[in-house]
Amino acid sequence: MKKEAAKSLRAFAIELAIYAVFVIGYFFLVLHLLGEWLYHLEAQRRILYAVVALLLIAGQAVALDAVTTLLFRLLRGRWR
């Protein structure tokens, strides 16, 4: 039981490290590029901005959920 818990914890720590690298890359690339465009959209076309905001947050949720699930499965398989 303890061995299993240690394996899960190790897999989770590695998942977190890989995920952190992804997220830092994401901060500096995607958000930096989108920032200016979203700023102008928010100021000029609010309804379109509202739709884009919802699509972005939903899209990010699905994408990051898939990434973390995949990472977790790969690492779980590897440590088993």
Partner: peptide
Amino acid sequence: GTFSHAVKGNVDILIALVMHTGAVIGAQ
């Protein structure tokens, strides 16, 4: 609620996107 607030100019989606990167792991 998000749509309604965004139309009124109350949503900074960039902040929400960054917060959400941490929430994904926490929610799981």
